[in-house]
């Protein structure tokens, strides 16, 4: 699904990613840990193709195509989707309208999709205008459901979310990643999964999201380097006990 080879990225003169190698398989969910300023968000922004993140070396291969220099809308159309942490308000653009635009011509039912994230009453509000932390997450998930991407990039799905919302968001993230499965006559659940399963790359600070999603692999990003590949729960346990300091030793 996604292969990152020796990726070097600069913001201005500062190198923020220093040779990242990462492979995410189809249907796999990968968890990225790391302290503030370690380069996690920069990695996601670079993958999505935002301006200001200059790739100075390496390649990004997404679904067999080299997208290292591709504009972000081409990546999105190839099936890359991203949930933003602090999306901008766009006045006069209704959430409903944006949801329809995310679907790019496919038939979607904004009411039904919004119902899943308890967001129907926001459909006629300007996108992100005065949304709380939890509302932003739900709005981002709503747009992603309409967009139907193959690989979803989540930037801290749990940040700024209260407990009640966390449960809703966790469940929706899980169903977005695994597809909603229910026993159906014409298709076994295994076959359903193979058809709907998506890949995911999730940045987490606290690890709360691990209570909801089945994450296959995880790694720590520290000071622009990836290290410590392990099962996400083990990494989380380790960080909780010893902090990120251990990662530095690991690197040395």
């Amino acid at each position: 699904m996604l292969t990152i080879e020796d990726l070097h990225v600069k913001i201005g003169e500062r190198e923020v990613l220093k040779g990242i190698n990462l492979h995410i398989k189809e249907g796999e969910t990968f968890i990225l840990f790391g302290p503030n300023g370690s380069g996690k968000t920069s990695l996601l922004m670079t993958l999505m193709g935002f301006s200001g993140y200059t790739v100075t070396g390496g390649r990004i291969i997404f679904r067999g195509q080299d997208v290292t220099q591709a504009p972000s809308f081409e990546r999105a159309r190839l099936g890359l989707g991203m949930s933003f942490q602090r999306p901008p308000t766009i006045h006069g653009l209704k959430t409903r309208h944006l949801v329809q635009m995310c679907a790019r011509g496919r038939q979607v039912d904004p009411e039904a999709l919004a119902g899943k994230v308890n967001f129907t009453e926001f459909l006629d509000r300007d996108i992100n205008a005065g949304f709380s932390g939890g509302e932003i997450k739900r709005s981002e998930l709503l747009q992603l459901m309409a967009q139907n991407p193959k690989l979803v990039l989540f930037d801290e799905p749990e940040s700024g979310v209260d407990l009640e919302n966390m449960q809703l968001i966790g469940k929706v993230v899980r169903s977005l990643l695994s597809g909603e499965l229910s026993p159906r006559a014409e298709l076994s659940m295994k076959e359903q999964k193979s058809r709907t399963a998506r890949s995911g790359l999730i940045i987490t600070h606290t690890g709360y999201i691990l209570d909801y999603v089945n994450a296959d692999r995880g790694q720590v990003l520290y000071n622009g380097h990836l290290c410590c590949e392990a099962r996400p729960r083990d990494i989380l346990e380790h960080i909780r006990s010893y902090g990120y300091q251990e990662c530095v030793r690991c690197l040395n």
Binding site: F73, A76, F84, I90, G92, M101, R104
Partner: peptide, 28 residues
């Protein structure tokens, strides 16, 4: 705002579509 254009481009709109969407919202 460039940030608004890039937000919409990350949803699959090319730059012109994104700009036009923002302008239509502005001229609400």
């Amino acid at each position: 705002a460039q940030e608004e254009i890039e937000y919409l481009m990350a949803r699959g709109m090319d730059e012109e579509e994104a700009t036009s969407t923002i302008v239509r919202g502005f001229l609400n």
